[in-house]
Design a protein around this nucleic acid. Sequence first.
DNA 1: GACCAGGCACATC
DNA 2: GATGTGCATGGT
Length: 219
Amino acid sequence: MRKTLDNLYRHLTAHYGPTHWWPGDTPFEVAVGAVLTQNTAWTNVEKAIAGLKAEHLLEPGALLECPTELIETALRPCGYFRVKTKRLRAFCRYLDERYGGSMTRMAETSLEDLRPELLDVNGIGPETADDILLYACDKPVFVVDAYTRRILGRHGLVTADIAYEELRATFEDAIEPDVQMFKEYHGLLVYTGKDFCRRKPKCAACPLQPLLEDGQPEG
DNA sequence: GACCAGGCACATC
DNA sequence: GATGTGCATGGT
């Protein structure tokens, strides 16, 4: 599997070049984006983040203090605006109470301690937690998302119903932990998913096709 | 006018 | 523990 995942990364890098994934000007904005993008297209998230910025709400203190309706209005374009308002507030409350609202202080916490903390926040599940850990805190966790599962599943590398933690472990056990590479790898899988693995699959043009032609992956 | 999008919590069996 | 459902808007 190590060789397969190395090959996968090389093929995608050759095809796309650097992705500079994840969009976001600050660690806090990255964390906000992680919550807002839950089951939602990023184009809609961008509108919501722009709305928050326009209201000067892109900081934990402001989100905790302002009227709920103000946040809901800003979040409307990205859907689920009521639940996402609650989830953003839950994250801000946690960040405020545990780290005085500082993403920098949060990032100083060890991965082993921080991941369970995040998962304990209402509205933060495995993928959202790992987005925050990798892209906002620079922790070496491999982010698994719907694209990761779909791409590897369609190419027969894993079963389509593989559990989140199992798929994460598949990557983390097979490849050397490297924050920058993990960031790029996930970005490349998102690019690939958007281009070739949506509802009208274009598998023949998928950059992973050469990988399969080279020979089926080992275990 | 369906169907889908970078999930998650909660209820129920 | 597995499965189903609500959450909501915008693009294709």
